[in-house]
Protein backbone atom coordinates (compact mmCIF):
# COMPACT_ATOMS: atom_id res chain seq x y z
CA UNK A 1 0.00 0.00 0.00
CA UNK A 2 1.31 3.48 -0.87
CA UNK A 3 2.39 5.69 2.05
CA UNK A 4 1.01 8.79 0.33
CA UNK A 5 -1.78 8.94 -2.21
CA UNK A 6 -2.76 12.41 -3.42
CA UNK A 7 -5.56 12.72 -5.95
CA UNK A 8 -6.64 15.72 -8.01
CA UNK A 9 -4.97 18.15 -5.62
CA UNK A 10 -5.79 21.78 -6.30
CA UNK A 11 -4.67 24.77 -4.32
CA UNK A 12 -5.77 28.28 -5.13
CA UNK A 13 -4.89 31.56 -3.49
CA UNK A 14 -6.79 34.80 -4.06
CA UNK A 15 -5.81 35.34 -7.67
CA UNK A 16 -3.71 32.41 -8.72
CA UNK A 17 -3.73 28.62 -8.69
CA UNK A 18 -0.63 27.06 -7.13
CA UNK A 19 -1.65 23.45 -7.85
CA UNK A 20 -3.92 22.34 -10.71
CA UNK A 21 -5.11 18.77 -10.26
CA UNK A 22 -1.95 17.03 -9.04
CA UNK A 23 -1.97 13.21 -8.67
CA UNK A 24 0.91 11.47 -6.95
CA UNK A 25 1.51 8.26 -5.01
CA UNK A 26 4.63 7.66 -2.91
CA UNK A 27 5.62 4.24 -1.63
CA UNK A 28 7.07 3.47 1.82
CA UNK A 29 10.87 3.90 1.98
CA UNK A 30 10.96 5.87 -1.27
CA UNK A 31 13.20 8.96 -1.60
CA UNK A 32 11.37 11.35 -3.88
CA UNK A 33 12.69 14.68 -5.02
CA UNK A 34 10.20 17.28 -6.17
CA UNK A 35 11.91 19.77 -8.37
CA UNK A 36 10.97 22.69 -10.50
CA UNK A 37 11.48 26.42 -10.94
CA UNK A 38 10.42 29.02 -8.40
CA UNK A 39 6.60 29.32 -8.29
CA UNK A 40 6.02 25.88 -9.78
CA UNK A 41 4.05 24.74 -6.69
CA UNK A 42 6.55 22.24 -5.30
CA UNK A 43 6.63 23.66 -1.74
CA UNK A 44 2.85 24.01 -1.76
CA UNK A 45 2.56 20.35 -2.73
CA UNK A 46 4.99 19.34 0.02
CA UNK A 47 3.05 21.34 2.62
CA UNK A 48 -0.19 19.65 1.56
CA UNK A 49 1.37 16.18 1.54
CA UNK A 50 2.69 16.83 5.05
CA UNK A 51 -0.54 18.23 6.47
CA UNK A 52 0.88 21.71 7.02
CA UNK A 53 -1.66 23.11 4.57
CA UNK A 54 -4.95 21.86 3.16
CA UNK A 55 -5.86 21.64 -0.53
CA UNK A 56 -8.68 23.67 -2.04
CA UNK A 57 -9.87 20.47 -3.77
CA UNK A 58 -8.81 16.83 -3.85
CA UNK A 59 -7.67 14.61 -1.02
CA UNK A 60 -4.51 13.20 0.50
CA UNK A 61 -4.28 9.82 2.19
CA UNK A 62 -1.16 9.50 4.32
CA UNK A 63 -0.44 6.16 5.96
CA UNK A 64 -4.10 5.25 5.34
CA UNK A 65 -5.55 8.41 6.92
CA UNK A 66 -7.50 11.02 4.97
CA UNK A 67 -5.67 14.00 6.42
CA UNK A 68 -8.06 16.49 4.81
CA UNK A 69 -10.81 15.19 7.10
CA UNK A 70 -8.84 15.85 10.30
CA UNK A 71 -9.43 18.83 12.56
CA UNK A 72 -6.58 21.28 13.07
CA UNK A 73 -5.63 19.63 16.38
CA UNK A 74 -6.13 16.16 14.86
CA UNK A 75 -3.77 17.17 12.09
CA UNK A 76 -1.21 18.41 14.63
CA UNK A 77 -1.38 15.09 16.48
CA UNK A 78 -1.07 13.22 13.18
CA UNK A 79 2.00 15.29 12.20
CA UNK A 80 3.83 14.59 15.45
CA UNK A 81 3.21 10.85 15.16
CA UNK A 82 4.06 10.48 11.51
CA UNK A 83 6.16 13.27 10.02
CA UNK A 84 9.52 14.97 10.51
CA UNK A 85 10.28 18.32 8.85
CA UNK A 86 13.40 20.06 7.63
CA UNK A 87 13.07 23.59 6.26
CA UNK A 88 15.31 25.80 4.16
CA UNK A 89 15.82 28.20 7.07
CA UNK A 90 16.77 26.05 9.98
CA UNK A 91 13.96 27.47 12.17
CA UNK A 92 15.74 26.56 15.36
CA UNK A 93 14.54 28.32 18.50
CA UNK A 94 17.30 30.84 19.14
CA UNK A 95 17.26 30.80 22.94
CA UNK A 96 17.45 27.01 23.23
CA UNK A 97 20.63 24.95 22.90
CA UNK A 98 21.05 22.36 20.13
CA UNK A 99 20.06 19.62 22.59
CA UNK A 100 17.02 21.54 23.80
CA UNK A 101 15.87 22.17 20.24
CA UNK A 102 15.84 18.43 19.67
CA UNK A 103 14.16 17.81 23.02
CA UNK A 104 11.38 20.25 22.11
CA UNK A 105 10.30 17.88 19.34
CA UNK A 106 10.28 15.01 21.86
CA UNK A 107 8.24 17.17 24.25
CA UNK A 108 5.43 17.70 21.77
CA UNK A 109 5.56 14.01 20.76
CA UNK A 110 5.85 12.24 24.12
CA UNK A 111 8.46 12.60 26.88
CA UNK A 112 11.75 14.49 26.46
CA UNK A 113 14.86 12.39 26.96
CA UNK A 114 17.97 14.53 27.14
CA UNK A 115 20.43 11.67 26.67
CA UNK A 116 18.53 10.42 23.63
CA UNK A 117 18.58 13.95 22.17
CA UNK A 118 22.32 14.23 22.78
CA UNK A 119 22.88 10.83 21.14
CA UNK A 120 20.87 11.98 18.10
CA UNK A 121 23.13 15.01 17.81
CA UNK A 122 26.24 12.86 18.15
CA UNK A 123 24.95 10.71 15.26
CA UNK A 124 24.84 13.77 13.02
CA UNK A 125 28.37 14.70 14.06
CA UNK A 126 27.53 17.42 16.57
CA UNK A 127 28.80 15.78 19.74
CA UNK A 128 30.97 18.82 20.31
CA UNK A 129 28.10 21.31 19.84
CA UNK A 130 25.48 19.89 22.19
CA UNK A 131 25.04 22.96 24.38
CA UNK A 132 25.62 25.59 21.71
CA UNK A 133 22.91 28.04 20.77
CA UNK A 134 21.91 28.20 17.06
CA UNK A 135 23.74 31.51 16.65
CA UNK A 136 26.96 29.72 17.64
CA UNK A 137 26.54 27.11 14.88
CA UNK A 138 27.39 27.31 11.16
CA UNK A 139 24.62 26.93 8.56
CA UNK A 140 25.59 23.32 7.91
CA UNK A 141 25.63 22.54 11.62
CA UNK A 142 22.22 24.14 12.05
CA UNK A 143 20.79 21.92 9.31
CA UNK A 144 22.32 18.88 10.98
CA UNK A 145 20.54 19.87 14.23
CA UNK A 146 17.35 20.06 12.14
CA UNK A 147 17.96 16.54 10.81
CA UNK A 148 18.47 15.21 14.33
CA UNK A 149 15.32 17.03 15.45
CA UNK A 150 13.25 15.78 12.50
CA UNK A 151 14.24 12.16 13.07
CA UNK A 152 14.22 12.03 16.90
CA UNK A 153 10.68 10.60 17.03
CA UNK A 154 11.34 7.99 14.27
CA UNK A 155 8.81 9.39 11.77
CA UNK A 156 7.52 7.36 8.84
CA UNK A 157 7.92 10.35 6.54
CA UNK A 158 10.61 13.03 6.36
CA UNK A 159 9.65 16.20 4.48
CA UNK A 160 12.51 18.44 3.52
CA UNK A 161 11.88 21.80 1.87
CA UNK A 162 15.10 23.06 0.21
CA UNK A 163 17.18 21.67 3.10
CA UNK A 164 20.41 22.71 1.43
CA UNK A 165 19.11 25.92 -0.10
CA UNK A 166 21.26 28.10 2.13
CA UNK A 167 24.39 25.94 2.08
CA UNK A 168 27.51 25.90 -0.08
CA UNK A 169 28.32 22.84 -2.16
CA UNK A 170 30.58 21.30 0.47
CA UNK A 171 28.03 21.62 3.25
CA UNK A 172 25.29 20.48 0.85
CA UNK A 173 27.20 17.28 0.24
CA UNK A 174 27.74 16.75 4.00
CA UNK A 175 24.05 17.21 4.75
CA UNK A 176 22.94 14.95 1.89
CA UNK A 177 25.40 12.23 2.86
CA UNK A 178 24.09 12.41 6.38
CA UNK A 179 20.50 12.16 5.15
CA UNK A 180 21.45 9.21 2.94
CA UNK A 181 23.09 7.41 5.85
CA UNK A 182 20.10 7.97 8.12
CA UNK A 183 17.74 6.93 5.31
CA UNK A 184 19.65 3.70 4.80
CA UNK A 185 19.70 2.98 8.53
CA UNK A 186 16.19 3.96 9.53
CA UNK A 187 14.11 3.12 6.46
CA UNK A 188 11.82 6.13 6.45
CA UNK A 189 10.38 7.83 3.39
CA UNK A 190 11.80 11.13 2.16
CA UNK A 191 10.03 13.79 0.10
CA UNK A 192 12.59 16.48 -0.67
CA UNK A 193 11.78 19.70 -2.45
CA UNK A 194 14.64 21.34 -4.32
CA UNK A 195 15.35 23.45 -7.37
CA UNK A 196 18.92 22.13 -7.46
CA UNK A 197 19.41 19.24 -9.94
CA UNK A 198 22.48 18.06 -7.97
CA UNK A 199 20.36 17.61 -4.85
CA UNK A 200 17.40 16.15 -6.76
CA UNK A 201 19.51 13.33 -8.16
CA UNK A 202 20.29 11.95 -4.67
CA UNK A 203 16.70 10.59 -4.67
CA UNK A 204 15.49 7.33 -6.18
CA UNK A 205 12.70 9.17 -7.96
CA UNK A 206 12.45 12.69 -9.32
CA UNK A 207 9.16 14.49 -9.88
CA UNK A 208 9.27 17.67 -11.94
CA UNK A 209 6.72 20.45 -11.54
CA UNK A 210 5.82 23.49 -13.56
CA UNK A 211 2.93 25.91 -13.24
CA UNK A 212 1.09 23.73 -10.70
CA UNK A 213 1.33 20.53 -12.78
CA UNK A 214 3.59 17.49 -12.62
CA UNK A 215 5.49 17.59 -15.88
CA UNK A 216 7.65 14.54 -15.36
CA UNK A 217 7.99 11.66 -12.92
CA UNK A 218 11.07 9.48 -13.45
CA UNK A 219 13.67 7.39 -11.70
CA UNK A 220 16.84 9.27 -10.75
CA UNK A 221 19.51 9.07 -13.39
CA UNK A 222 17.02 8.74 -16.22
CA UNK A 223 16.57 11.65 -18.58
Amino acid sequence: MSLIVAEKIEKSYATNAALRGVNIAIEPREWVSITGPSGSGKSTLMNILGGLDLPTAGCVRLNGTDICALSEDGLARFRRETIGYIFQQSHLIPYLSATENVMLCQYFHSIPDEEEAREALRRVGLGHRLDHKPSQLSGGEQQRVCIARALINSPKLLLADEPTGNLDRENTRVVLELLKRMYDEEHFTIVLVTHDPFVAEWAGRVVGMEDGHIVFDRKAGET
Binding site: A76, R77, R79, Y85
Partner: peptide, 9 residues
Protein backbone atom coordinates in the same frame (compact mmCIF):
# COMPACT_ATOMS: atom_id res chain seq x y z
CA UNK B 1 7.57 25.59 14.19
CA UNK B 2 5.97 24.15 17.32
CA UNK B 3 2.76 23.57 15.40
CA UNK B 4 4.68 21.88 12.58
CA UNK B 5 6.28 19.62 15.19
CA UNK B 6 2.82 18.63 16.35
CA UNK B 7 1.93 21.08 19.11
CA UNK B 8 -1.87 21.24 19.29
CA UNK B 9 -3.97 24.13 20.62
Amino acid sequence: LMKAMGADS
